[in-house]
Design a binder for these strands. Sequence first.
DNA 1: ATTATTTACGAAAACGTTGTAGTAACCCAG
DNA 2: CTGGGTTACTACAACGTTTTCGTAAATAAT
Lengths: 338, 338
Amino acid sequence: MNAVNLKQLALELNLSVSTVSRALRDSWEISTPTKQRVFDLAKKMNFQPNPYASSLRKHRSRTIAVVLPEVANNFFALAIKGIETVAREKGYHVLIYLTNEEAAEEMAIASSLQSGRVDGVILSLCGSTKETRHLLELQQRNIPLVFFDRVCEELTAPKVMTNDYESGFIATEHLIKAGCRRVAHLTISMSLSISHRRQEGYVDALRRWELPCDPSLVVHCPREEEESYRMIRELFSSSFRPDGVFASVEKLAVQVYHVCRELGLRIPEDVKVISFSNLVTASLLEPSLTTIAQPAYDMGKEAATMLFRRLEKKYIVVPDDQVMLPARLEVRNSTRAV
Amino acid sequence: MNAVNLKQLALELNLSVSTVSRALRDSWEISTPTKQRVFDLAKKMNFQPNPYASSLRKHRSRTIAVVLPEVANNFFALAIKGIETVAREKGYHVLIYLTNEEAAEEMAIASSLQSGRVDGVILSLCGSTKETRHLLELQQRNIPLVFFDRVCEELTAPKVMTNDYESGFIATEHLIKAGCRRVAHLTISMSLSISHRRQEGYVDALRRWELPCDPSLVVHCPREEEESYRMIRELFSSSFRPDGVFASVEKLAVQVYHVCRELGLRIPEDVKVISFSNLVTASLLEPSLTTIAQPAYDMGKEAATMLFRRLEKKYIVVPDDQVMLPARLEVRNSTRAV
DNA sequence: ATTATTTACGAAAACGTTGTAGTAACCCAG
DNA sequence: CTGGGTTACTACAACGTTTTCGTAAATAAT
């Protein structure tokens, strides 16, 4: 692979390997003219230090892992961008792992990260994760772990979140104010704390407006597209169907649109829809979709920043500081009062 | 970090480091009972071999790099998923780098990858890349490079592409058949070969239907959103505006929709729109968007497969085999004949 | 003039793994 | 019972860096 190394430079320059190494790192122990000679030759020979030798020696890989449930989703895609931006600024490399919402894959990935391959991990839980031993083990190996959006409440770790409770409340209240009386909540796995928070916000908004909480209106959609579609279709086929829907996940809102088309339900006349979403096309949908948009890019940047703060232990860091970035309500036609 | 290593296992078992190493790799040189003892202790102590020591020794990192212009875009996001899937199957790790469409960043990344950090690279050129020295240097370091969608025609390397020429032709012809006589082509940087191919298809379709090629109808949109928006707006503000638009890039189609709203132009009555796009919401837009959809996930898988074929040189591989996966025309209302 | 300090470098040992070369111990043939 | 072959291990060097320790030579202090 990379043929040129310190030994060759040293040989060429009649210097020792240590001197060359030090010169390249601009050590004060090396005289200016020598440094210059080393720099020049290194540049000429296009010397690139072997990162693995360096990592082995220094016990630092300058690499972090980002573990996500999926990426074909604007939220996570933007988050990656935020993370990558900060990482490259800091001279770090980013390994990406997708769990595909499978707890087993998340565990396998976490386990493999115990090898010391990475200095730190940014993770967003997958919906099917039930236990957190694999994450605890990471922490026990002294690999800093930062949670991101889908945080793990049981573990002590830095977390970057959105104000899920408030957002759930606001979304539901928005539907109610627009005239809805039977508001459904579509969500994914209830083992995720963000789902809980949003659900709590939903429930409290109903209470606040003295509307009944019908458990049949809270639908936990599975990962499988078809199954999920079927459940939503069923929800809307009932004679006593909801007149408003709060979708916790973008994908579910899209399915709601499709179901409504299939069933001939008009949005917002028959059903109003609001969704957590970062769709760039929200405003171009028919009808345009009212969204709760999370600051995905900033959340990514923030998570990365928190991780690097821990990695470059410049000062004592609180082990579980949490950052909460507010989501924005973007009102559009899918919740227009009619 | 990771405290447990071969030496400790060896010490505990009264064996040499080499024996433990070989036992773990299930070598025939080690007796079955010894292997069992080693396995058991390794499991008990949760031993994870240090990947950097291994990489250093073996000159293989089992890591690849994916270099993309952006990720907040369904096409690239799906591609990553395809790549990651294949990579994890093969036991490889995936480093991700975003160029943000900046040639300078692409060069810096390529340069840093010369260090031997990765065994191979999958890359999609960024729009502003003019020269390819940085990529050539990678190849000269014997780091296999596979191009993906935005390929580099000057370099000899495996490439995974879409049938851009045909797609450009089909898209344009589709507009013409729907009644358009002044078809515009919105594209990004013309230094990309895919832009050229699509443009060629566009031109040939116009010729085939004996329509004039008005150069003012081919608009090269810059990366900056506002600037790009301004140019599209200008195009449509002209008194002799196009009655059909072929957008080479999803983002531009979205901007066309916005411009049309702003100018009060109706799609498809006043302007018909077709676009390269992998938007999941294409069918939900107002009006639903006719797209040329690339098989992004499969392209990612294919690119990764080609790369691994090269890395695991089981047999002689052609240095520049190219795979062309066809894009699909998905006809929707934005090109409805009226 | 002698000793202390600084400057500029080199030798060598790590880091944890893998591969090569070697070697005791045992088995079997002659 | 000697010699060739197998079995099951060990010793050691190597991968390319970084770092600790050491030391000649030059300079400064006494």
